Simulated assay, not measured.
Amino acid sequence: MNSPTYQLNVSREGRWWIIDAPEVDYRTQARTLADVEEMGRDLIAGALDVDPSTFDVSVNIAKPADVEARLAEVAELDREAQIVVSRAARGRREAARTLRDQYGLSVVDTARVLGVTRGRVYQLLGREKDTVA
């Protein structure tokens, strides 16, 4: 049987974390984020007169607008970085294939040209070690 889940909306006010439990229309506070879940559970359990272990909580921490904006920028930078990393990896694979297929270099020589190990060349080529060294 699934336990009900109650939302805890948490925001900072001065030196305290304010915990709002909208489903029971009560609020409490905690000194640290580490205390939020326990305080929220106690609040909900008291409001509903149930054991705190009979339900789940989902904690939503409100971030200041400037921090939220900065995190959105960072997420976009992470996305762009992943695209660049993917392009770089594709370029390495293409370089390894070109050295092997068009220039006939051995795996050992390909590794030396690329400045990587033989094992890495096999990874870049996407195949198991073959008999040609």
Rank of each mutant, 00 (worst) to 15 (best):
Ala45Trp: 08
Arg27Gln: 14
Leu105Met: 11
Ser53Lys: 07
Val50Glu: 14
Ala47Pro: 05
Asp101Met: 00
Glu94Ala: 11
Ala88Gln: 04
Ala72Trp: 07
Leu71Asn: 13
Asn60Trp: 03
Asp51Val: 04
Arg79Asp: 03
Arg100Asn: 05
Arg93Gly: 13
Arg90Leu: 10
Thr110Pro: 14
Arg93His: 09
Val50Asp: 08
Met39Gln: 15
Gln29Thr: 10
Pro64Gly: 04
Ala111Glu: 03
Ala30Pro: 11
Ile83Gln: 10
Lys63Ser: 11
Arg112Tyr: 09
Ala34Gln: 10
Val59Ile: 00
Glu94Pro: 00
Met39Ile: 13
Ala45Gln: 08
Ser106Phe: 03
Arg112Met: 06
Tyr103Phe: 09
Tyr103Lys: 01
Val84Asp: 08
Arg118Asp: 13
Val107Thr: 11
Met39Asn: 15
Gly46His: 04
Leu114Phe: 07
Ser58Met: 07
Thr32Gly: 13
Asn60Thr: 01
Thr28His: 09
Leu105Tyr: 13
Ala89Ser: 01
Leu48Gly: 08
Thr54Asp: 04
Val59Asn: 01
Val57Asn: 07
Val57Gln: 09
Asp78Asn: 10
Asp42Lys: 14
Asp25Leu: 03
Gly46Arg: 10
Arg87Cys: 03
Thr117Pro: 15
Val107Ala: 12
Ala81Gly: 06
Pro64Ile: 01
Val116Asp: 13
Gly119Leu: 01
Asp66Pro: 04
Ala62Val: 00
Leu33Ala: 11
Val74Phe: 12
Val50Cys: 05
Val107Pro: 08
Gly119His: 01
Tyr26Phe: 06
Ala75Arg: 13
Glu68Gln: 15
Thr110Phe: 11
Gly115Asn: 05
Thr32Phe: 09
Ser53Asp: 10
Asn60Gly: 01
Val107Leu: 13
Val36Trp: 02
Asp49Gly: 11
Ala69Arg: 14
Arg97Ile: 00
Val59Trp: 00
Arg70Leu: 09
Ala96Lys: 03
Ala75Pro: 05
Leu33His: 09
Thr28Cys: 14
Gln82Tyr: 01
Glu73Asp: 15
Ala95Trp: 01
Ala75Ser: 12
Val67Trp: 07
Asp66Tyr: 07
Ser58Asn: 11
Pro52Thr: 02
Ile44Lys: 15
Thr28Glu: 10
Asp109Leu: 12
Arg87Leu: 06
Ala45Asp: 09
Asp42Ala: 15
Asp66Arg: 13
Thr32Asp: 15
Tyr26Gly: 06
Gly46Lys: 12
Asp56Asn: 12
Val59Thr: 04
Ala65Gly: 10
Ser106Ile: 02
Asp78Val: 00
Leu105Trp: 12
Arg31Cys: 08
Glu76Trp: 02
Leu48Phe: 03
Leu33Tyr: 06
Ile44Gly: 14
Glu94Met: 07
Asp101Trp: 00
Ala88His: 05
Ala88Gly: 02
Gly119Gln: 02
Glu76Leu: 08
Val107Cys: 14
Ile44Ser: 14
